[in-house]
Deep mutational scan, measured.
Amino acid sequence: MDVFMKGLSKAKEGVVAAAEKTKQGVAEAAGKTKEGVLYVGSKTKEGVVHGVATVAEKTKEQVTNVGGAVVTGVTAVAQKTVEGAGSIAAATGFVKKDQLGKNEEGAPQEGILEDMPVDPDNEAYEMPSEEGYQDYEPEA
């Protein structure tokens, strides 16, 4: 019985440690998101679009440190934060509304985080759909 109880105690310690790591990862992701939003706020009209992409990228980098179902929630929060940063930029006159959601080359930025393969159960990952990809044929 002692062996059984000791095993359960060790398992509990492992769960607590994993929860603490997840909590730490979420806190880091939130900190990076805040950094990115402050970065966007300090940019001029020309830099705002690039700044919004930076927020998304920093958040995406930190999301990889967070495991399990938390990833889905962090990704949703990050996307809403990026959308909010863009709205703030438009409201303050840093950028025109028609410039939001495009990178410096004018290509749409939507789907940055949505296409990231995420499995809350950590069982399997699927690649994003290939609808947006084109076949590449090298020139002879």
Rank of each mutant, 00 (worst) to 15 (best):
Y133V: 04
A85F: 10
V48L: 12
V48S: 01
G14I: 14
A27M: 15
E13V: 03
E28V: 12
S42N: 14
A11L: 13
A56C: 12
D115S: 05
V95I: 13
G93H: 06
G93W: 13
V37R: 00
K10N: 04
V48C: 05
F94W: 15
A78T: 10
A11D: 00
N103V: 12
K34M: 03
Y136D: 02
E83G: 06
L8W: 14
K45V: 14
K10D: 01
V63N: 01
F4N: 00
P120V: 05
K32Y: 11
A69G: 05
V49Y: 14
K10T: 04
A76V: 10
A140H: 06
E130R: 04
Q62S: 09
E28T: 06
V26E: 00
G73A: 14
A124F: 15
T81L: 09
G25M: 12
K12Q: 04
A78R: 06
E20C: 13
Y39W: 09
K21D: 00
E131A: 13
K21I: 10
K97Y: 02
G25F: 14
K60T: 06
F4G: 00
T92C: 13
G86K: 07
V48Q: 00
K80H: 06
V66S: 01
H50K: 07
D115T: 09
A90D: 06
T59G: 06
A53Y: 13
A124H: 12
K58Y: 13
E13Q: 05
A27V: 07
E46F: 06
A18W: 15
Q62C: 07
Y133D: 15
A17F: 10
D121T: 10
V15R: 00
S87T: 08
S9P: 00
K60Q: 04
G67T: 10
E57L: 06
N122A: 04
V77F: 14
T81H: 04
Y125E: 06
P138G: 11
V71I: 15
A53I: 12
S129N: 04
E46N: 12
A89C: 08
D119H: 12
A90G: 01
A78D: 02
E61N: 05
E13A: 14
G73W: 11
E139Y: 12
K58P: 01
E83T: 07
K32F: 09
D119F: 03
I88N: 02
T72I: 11
G67S: 08
G86Q: 13
G14W: 04
V118F: 07
E130W: 09
P117R: 04
T81I: 06
K60L: 12
E61A: 05
A53F: 11
E105G: 07
K97P: 11
G14Y: 12
A124P: 08
G36V: 14
K23Y: 06
E83P: 04
M5A: 02
T64K: 05
L113Q: 12
A53S: 10
A11M: 14
F94P: 03
E105K: 02
A85R: 03
V66L: 12
K32H: 08
A17M: 12
K23E: 00
L8H: 00
G14K: 13
V66K: 03
